[in-house]
Every structure is written in C-alpha cells, then in structure tokens.
Design a protein around this nucleic acid. Structure first.
Lengths: 206, 206
DNA sequence: GGAAGGGTTGAACGCTCATTCAAATATCGG
DNA sequence: CCGATATTTGAATGAGCGTTCAACCCTTCC
C-alpha cells in the first residue's frame, strides 16, 4: 500500500503536484502527470479543484503553512545561536543540492521566474513565501541583538540572505557544482563576520 | 518597412525569439509566436533551424557574443573606476526593472530556472553566459588591485555580485517593487565598503 | 432496503503545439 | 536566358494539452 493511499484525494493531489512542480516546473507538468502519479482519474481532480492553476495555489499554500515544520525546524535542530541558525538553514539547502546531484532548485524561486504572467493570487503567494522565509531570518537577526550594528537594516540583510540562497542555488544548478553555492555562502559569512567586528568595535567604544 | 526586414531570416528569428523567450519564457513561447512576430512561415524557420531548441541555442549564443556591446559598454559609459563599474552595471539592471514596470527578469537566470531538464548544450550555454558576466566583474576586481584585501577570493566575490543581481531581480519582480533590488544592492555596497576599509587598514600597517 | 448525494470513472472534446513536406518562387552562376 | 540550387509557402499531421460530463459506485441515513 502506497503511503499516500490513506490520505484524502485533495492532499494526495497537492503532494504529488508539489513534487512534480518542483522537479519539472509548472508548465512542464501536465494534469495527466499528476493523475498518473496519484493513480486518480481526471474527474476526481476536477471534482476537488476547478483547474490546474488552483492546484498550484494549493501547493503554494502548503509551502506557506509548512515552512516551520518542514523547513525551519529540521534545519535548526540542535542549533541555538541565532546567527548560526542562518547558516544552518543555508547548510540545509546545501544538503538538498548535494542530495539531488546538484539539480536542486528552490521551488518558490523557480516558480517565481517561470511564471511570467502569473495570476495575482499566485504572485501574492510566491511573495508571501519569500516574506515568511526572510521573516524567519529577520527574527534571527533581531535575536542577535547588539552583536550586530545597531544601525543595520535587519530587513535588508534578511532579504540579502534569501538572495544569497537563491543566487547560490541557481548557479550551483546551472553549473551542476555545489562549489558555487559554497562560495556564495562563504561570501555571506565574510559579510557577517565584518558586521560582527564592526558592532564589537562600537560596543568597546561605549 | 519594419526594421527587421533588411536582416536575414536567421537573424530575424533570433531577435524575435530573444524578445519572446525573455518576455514569456521558453516553454510558453510557441513556434507560432515567433512566426507571427517575424512574419515568416513555418518552413522558413525549419529551413534554418532543425527545431525550436536550436533557436534557443542561437539566442543564448547571441547573448554570449554580445555581452560587451549590448550590456557592458552601455553600462560603463563614462564610468572608469572599476568598483563603480560594478555598481553601474547593477544600476543598469535597476533601470531595466523600472523600465519594465518591475516585471524585468534576467533572461539567463529565468531560463536557467525554467529549463529543469535542459539539454547539455543549452545548460553549458547558460553556464557560459554566467561565467562571462562574472568574469567581467572579476576583471573589475582585479583592476581595483590593492584597494581590496590581498587574500580576497576575487572569483567568489564576482559570483556574489551575480548572486546579488539575480536575487534582487527575482525579488523585485515577485513583489513588483524595485525597493527589494535596491536593498540588495545596498547590502552589497556595504560589503564592498567593509572590504575597502579592511584593505586600507592592512595597507596602513605595511 | 432504498433513496440521496458525495465522490469516481474514463472516454471524449476542442484546442494548441512542434514539426513536415510537396509545391511554388526567388536567386544566381554560366 | 536557362538550369540548378536555395529559400519560402502554408496546409496538413499527429501528439499532447486542460477540461468536461454522463454514467456509475459507494457510503450514509431513515
């Protein structure tokens, strides 16, 4: 018995579509792909969802609602220091890159660039997923308190961490080489080190 | 008379396809789209190109061969300082974002994420385009000489500049707001400022 | 046991897609 | 001006797409 078989139809579709959209992209995933993977028939899918795009919306809502349990909690297990948590999260992406033979792509980032004329509902969900990701980083930065310069724009830096992840993932996949991701993270680490030094200097003066 | 009409068939196709792939993506651009824009018939296209993917290859070669004239030269006009050139290039992207009502996407980056199972030839061309872009930045970093720390990994930093651009463009487009790009560039500027300070400190000691 | 209705079946539909090709036309060397 | 070669025409093809729907199954409740 497949592990999906106890789940309800809607959930089975969302899980299958999540994997397929991630692996092949939205446009390259056909409804038939989703049906064959879930062993369902067209009517069942269209009984639950008005159309293919509504499946995408459900997938993006799933990412949005599961970021804590599915991404942050696993990445931060046993890591307490707020700044190390940031790099632990990046390390989790590194792990996913390696695990997929350097073909990993951030599902949100890939969809954001693939869907050129995205429906407003879809675009807003992509944006919310980015916001939640960066928001989690921003909370780490706030927790770091005085270790970082007081005047530092914490929101900007949290977005910059997201940028580092997305850019690193993009290059690692294009070159099929994690080293590109690693060098990006190393540059970000350098950035943090310099910020920490700057803040420590200010602290010492006061 | 359309400005394209004096050009040969192959060039007309490549130029039209370049625009369409950029605006709609590769998969969402049909051969019929290219034909209607060039006012050609299917047979003409297939006389020049074996198939749609070969048009993509030609487009990527066009980007590869034109980076100096079409991207770097315009961006660096009147800018001599090597570090300012880096930010002048980023500013050119900012301009394109604004010009497209915050819908701009880097053609290479978008294709890199859209094409999940890209043909090796295509992937290599995407990688070469990235390499050339980062290579141009790396030359700026080398020109900056002792202004940057001696031990700095210039290749890593040039890739980090690319990361900043790609991540900023991705977020600006998703949120339909240049401010996301601006904050990314500001963070990178901060990074450079700290590197310059670090190098200046080392210089003073010697 | 039977009516009701949520859920499923899977063939069929209309459309778009990339691609083909025989025929027509343009170009050019001799 | 002719013949050969290069290029263009545009209808046709078959595969795949998202979606529909009448018929059917199965649970639930009286």
């Amino acid at each position: 018995m497949s592990p999906q078989e106890k789940l309800d139809t809607r959930t089975r579709i969302v899980l299958a579509a999540m994997e397929l959209f991630w692996a092949k992209g939205y446009n390259s995933t056909s409804v038939a792909d989703i049906l064959s993977r879930t062993q369902l028939n067209a009517g069942s899918l269209y009984h639950v969802f008005p159309g293919k795009q509504d499946v995408l919306v459900a997938v993006l809502e799933f990412y949005r609602d599961g970021i804590q349990e599915n991404l942050l909690d696993p990445a931060w297990e046993g890591v307490d220091d707020p700044i190390e948590r940031i790099f632990a999260l990046l390390d989790r992406y590194r792990w996913m890159i390696v695990e997929t033979d350097n073909t990993y792509g951030c599902p949100i980032g890939s969809l954001a660039l693939e869907l050129h004329e995205a429906d407003p509902v879809v675009r807003e969900l992509l944006a919310i997923n980015f916001t939640n990701w960066a928001g989690a980083i921003e909370r780490c930065l706030e927790e770091a308190g005085e270790r970082l310069p007081a005047e530092l724009d914490r929101r900007a830096l949290s977005e910059f961490v997201l940028t580092t992840m997305e850019g690193g993932v993009m290059q690692a996949r294009t070159y099929r080489d994690v080293a590109y991701f690693d060098r990006g993270v190393a540059a970000l680490r350098d950035h943090f080190d310099m910020l920490l030094v700057r803040a420590a200097g200010r602290q010492a003066m006061a």
